[in-house]
Structure formats: structure tokens, C-alpha cells
Nucleic acid binder design. Structure first.
Lengths: 171, 171
DNA sequence: TCACATAGGTTATAACACTACATATTTGAA
DNA sequence: TTCAAATATGTAGTGTTATAACCTATGTGA
């Protein structure tokens, strides 16, 4: 194994960005936007948090907290689960990531709308594929129901299960 | 499927003690309906499954699997967690109960519509209060989104987080 | 520069869920 | 009626996910 960048003793808010692995351009772009987003809100996207977010963006599927422990561990200092959970808590708080409760897994948010919007996530029950859709209709209907019931709207994520177009019965 | 009468939801309230050992009339009614429902479908509502369902109906809040282990254990022979999980699997399969993934907890279904409908569950993020609402609008919108995305609709439960009328900011 | 808030490290454990296999009970067809 | 198959439960152990408690390091601002 070649020399790998280490996350050991990273320092906080280091001026120089961490070197990263095979991040796609799209991922880089998302990270740049996230950084600007956090800076604007006075939130600190530290190296660990940034790295977790990067992995979530790079992954083609939802990642479990312990997947992240493995991934990060294989690239340097192995972190305790609690460290990952704390990073995830931050990212979710900022609306940069979502927790998929039905799968005990986490995904990067596909848009930087902040934490207070309704997001629908379609989960294929066959292949596990996940796609985030912005549906004003669903958001609106949900808001209406919340209001009718006297509920105060909050950031929320709708996990909707079905079979994706590739896994349908009729294919 | 025959249209079965809907059970009135009690309206879960915060700070209520754990369920009693004596079933309310409402619970008895729900169990009688569930029995008929299962009989009609050739499903076996065994004593264990019936007891779990009874506890879920009696409870004023979602119960965790291990809550059920405790409750059942305190009333007789202590069962292994797997026994509870198997009973829950059955109840969910039949649409008699729902799993709230976001809370790792289970509730009795408030209506006997079977497992293949869209149900919305409102969860108060402050007091943990849960109420199940039948919203044709939400169900319809969700179905539409699924169709637009090429997803094949499936049984699903929407967990919607907010603040209930008692826990709103403006109170 | 120093007090305070925030981020992360370390160790341990809590909480939730299931595997594998044995035994018991029910069902339905011969 | 009988018996093989399917279903339901018992038992022991393990896997997986998430957090508690306490400490150290770093960033922030008066």
C-alpha cells in the first residue's frame, strides 16, 4: 500500500484542505458548496466532518455508521464509532446529510436547502437503490396535514419504499 | 377486501404511565376485530401474538421490542427477544402494527386496512407523542411521485416529524 | 491571555435485532 | 385417522447500531 494521507492529529479548521481519494468532480463541487454554506452560517466543517461528508457523496449507496468507521479506518487512524456519530449529527443538523431510519444508514443531501425542508427519499426494496426527489407536491401535502393536526412543521424526511424502475415486477 | 370499521385512536398523550394489565374496552374491541380479520385471511393470531398486540393497543405510546419483553416478562414467563420480534413481524405483515423506524419502536395500527396502504404517522419531536392519520391526499401524492419516478408502489409508512399542538414553540 | 465553548479521543456499555438449531403444535392430504 | 409438511415457539449465542461518561485539545472572543 502506498503512502496514504493520514487523518491523525488533523488540527482544527486547517488552512490547507485535506488531500483526498478519488473524489469525483461532482463530489468536489458539493464539498465546496458545503464549505461555503457552513462558512455563511458560522458552522465549522472540520476535517473529520468534511471527510465523512465526502465519503457520503462519493458512495453510490447509503452508508452505515460502521461502514464509515471502516472506510476512514482503512485510510489512516481508526476512529471510534462515537466520532463518526458526532460528525453525522453535525451534518444532519446542518441539512448536509440525511439519516435513513428504515435502513440505519446515511446519505449526503443532494441539495443545500438547509435542514428545514421536506425531502422525499425513494428506496428500492429490491436493489436498495436510493434517490432523493424534491417534490413540492408531497412537501405541500405533508405541511397541510401537519397544520391540520396542529403540528408545527419541522425538518423532515420521508422514506418511501417501492421497487425502482429496474426492479419492477413487470420487467 | 371488506371494509372494516376504523378504530378510534386514543390520542397519545405525553407523560402517561406504562400500560396497565387490564385491557380497556377499546382495546378489547380492537382485539376482537383483529381476530376476525385474521380468521378471514387464514392468519393465526396465536396467544403470544395476541398478547403483544394487546400491549401495543393498551400502551399510550410506541413500545420498543425490549419494552414488550419486560412487560410480558413481568406478567409470567419471560420470553426471549426473538420471540417478540417474531410476533411483531407477524403483526406488521398483517398490517395490525407498524414499526416506527425512526424510533425503533412499534405501535398498533389504528385501522384494519391491511398492510398495503399508505399510512402517515405524526411524531412529536418533543414529547414523543404519536398519532396515526389517514390522509388520502398524502397517499395520493406519494403514489404519484412513485409513479413519476418509475417506482412501483408498495406498502409504506410515512413517519413525519414535527411538534404537536401541545409542544409548539408558540405556546 | 485567559475563560469559555466546541471538537474530538478513549473506554466501556446500552439498546436493538437476528442466526442457528431444537422442539412443539397445527394442518391437510392420503 | 394418521402422518408428513408447514408453522410456531424455545433456547443459546452473536451481530449490529448507538450512546454514556469523562478527559484532552483547540478555537473564540472579551
Amino acid at each position: 500500500m502506498a503512502h496514504l494521507p493520514s487523518l491523525q492529529h488533523p488540527g482544527f479548521n486547517a488552512g490547507v484542505p485535506m488531500p483526498t481519494f478519488h473524489s469525483s468532480e461532482r463530489t468536489e463541487q458539493a464539498l465546496a458548496l458545503s464549505e461555503a454554506f457552513c462558512r455563511a452560517r458560522g458552522a465549522r466543517l472540520t476535517p473529520i466532518r468534511r471527510r465523512v461528508l465526502e465519503l457520503l457523496h462519493s458512495a453510490q449507496k447509503p452508508l452505515g455508521a460502521y461502514d464509515l468507521v471502516e472506510l476512514l479506518g482503512s485510510q489512516g487512524h481508526r476512529m471510534a464509532p462515537i466520532t463518526i456519530y458526532r460528525a453525522l449529527d453535525f451534518l444532519i443538523e446542518q441539512g448536509l446529510a440525511h439519516r435513513l431510519a428504515s435502513r440505519n444508514a446515511y446519505i449526503a443531501s443532494s441539495s443545500l436547502t438547509g435542514a428545514r425542508t421536506t425531502t422525499a427519499v425513494l428506496i428500492c426494496e429490491v436493489c436498495g437503490d436510493v434517490s432523493e426527489v424534491a417534490s413540492p407536491d408531497v412537501a405541500e401535502t405533508v405541511t397541510k396535514v401537519l397544520r391540520e393536526q396542529g403540528y408545527q412543521p419541522r425538518s423532515r424526511i420521508l422514506e418511501i419504499t417501492g421497487r425502482c424502475s429496474h426492479c419492477r415486477d413487470d420487467h
